[in-house]
Design a binder for these strands. Structure first.
Lengths: 241, 241
DNA sequence: TGCAACATTTTTGTTCAACAATCTTTCGTA
DNA sequence: TACGAAAGATTGTTGAACAAAAATGTTGCA
């Protein structure tokens, strides 16, 4: 006998839940804490993170702090120089342009794939993040809204079916979150995109691929301009300090 | 007064020279040695690398060995599992397909860029690796020929002008070298591609982009089949051991 | 004052020995 | 043979220590 069908969270929704299983190693837990602090804005871009300070704050040995740093470096959240230690990554305007150029390439080619019938897409993969973004926006939680937004675009790229592309795109999304930190008013930035994501999702699902491509390209161009401006402003502020 | 013009190494040629400057930290030097051993075939794919053994062999402490491992993990040369340590990466057939799909995407879109005049290319960037490959082939040095081959394709992708794409493509090239390790007869594999690279380079430089695209696609398809077969064979051999 | 050379302090790079936690292997028993 | 417990090997982590490099502070001089 089968159990009655009941509503289940859409694709990707569970991914945003905090994992219940505690991370196995101290280094990973430390990395998680540091990562959290970066995205919370506690450790601002450009901030140096001395090993001794983190060792004391997290109550772990310096060697373990270093392991955590290595992990975050490979996530491109920290920069490193020999004998100078690590610092929270600060995006440059060139970074922002590079990132959006690649997003344009990966996302529009995903639509091409759908358009030509070489790939298929579960509508829920787009609708779930859109709905999650709208819900977060309604609750005035713009960090969650931003993350849902990124999940929308990641799921679109997933139609390529390439594990390496997904991994690479995840990296780009991580860097986007660093860029979001530079925004002065996240609400003003994110709110319009909630509407646009809904529209793009509908067009893709409805098979109106040309319109979707056009809208997406405009979307990315606009977002790039805004984030680049925010990052530029941030770097001038840093210089003044 | 100007010095007389004299022959200079073409673009990228110097990159293949061993760096004279010794690496600053012991961890980096250790990583270089391990990397070397992998590509020399001394550490074969799938081989576990115990920390204690490397520590003794390289005369460095276990902590430093771990730092070297971290670096190589982020280069995707080593795999890692908690409490199980690291092992030399062994490509799967799925990996090979994924890699060639992405190569196809990046390389043909580079030609598109040239075709539409949105980017330009220094002919030397293609001709130098082609010549280097031919020279290495003539000297029966198929490791160098393989590396020159990869440089040819990297330089093609460079026309995108995206630092992240270049970095990502370098990763793919590194993984290709892991795949080359599975080849039974490198000469039989590489020799035909020396000729094809020359032909593709000529067509690109000559503006015959459609032909170049066709040839390149055929090239990649053929190479994918061969490397996938070699990797498949290698994995069955490993299973038998 | 401005600046260059030197001395001091801080921070990173690395080692070592030790122990806890987790696999792997071995081996005795049912 | 199959199972499971004990023994052994390997990884995860610590803390202290010192060398080496970078950052900082100080002095002396033009």
């Amino acid at each position: 006998m089968t159990r009655p069908e009941r509503a289940r969270p859409g694709s990707g929704a569970l991914a945003s839940l905090p994992s219940l299983a505690p991370l196995p190693t101290a280094a990973e837990r430390a990395a998680a804490v540091i990562r959290e602090n970066i995205f919370e804005g506690k450790f601002q871009p450009g901030t140096a993170l001395p090993e001794a300070a983190l060792s004391q704050a997290l109550q772990i040995s310096r060697n373990t702090v270093r392991e955590a740093f290595r992990a975050l470096m490979s996530e491109h959240l920290l920069t490193y120089e020999t004998h100078k230690g690590v610092a929270v990554r600060a995006l440059t305007v060139a970074d922002v342009h590079d990132i959006y150029t690649l997003r344009q390439m990966f996302e529009t080619s995903a639509i091409d794939l759908l358009d030509s019938g070489r790939a298929e897409l579960d509508p829920a993969a787009l609708l779930e993040p859109v709905a999650a973004g709208e819900a977060a926006g309604a609750a005035d939680d713009w960090v969650t809204a931003g993350t849902a937004n990124l999940r929308f675009h990641s799921n679109l790229v997933s139609v390529h079916g390439s594990t390496r592309m997904e991994e690479f795109f995840r990296r780009l999304m991580t860097e986007m979150r660093l860029g979001f930190l530079a925004l002065e008013d996240p609400k003003t930035f994110h709110a319009p995109y909630l509407v646009q994501n809904r529209s793009i999702a509908d067009k893709i699902i409805g098979g109106r691929y040309d319109e979707a491509r056009t809208d997406l390209t405009a979307y990315l161009e606009q977002a790039k301009t805004e984030v680049a401006a925010a990052v530029a402003k941030q770097s001038t502020v840093d210089d003044d300090r």
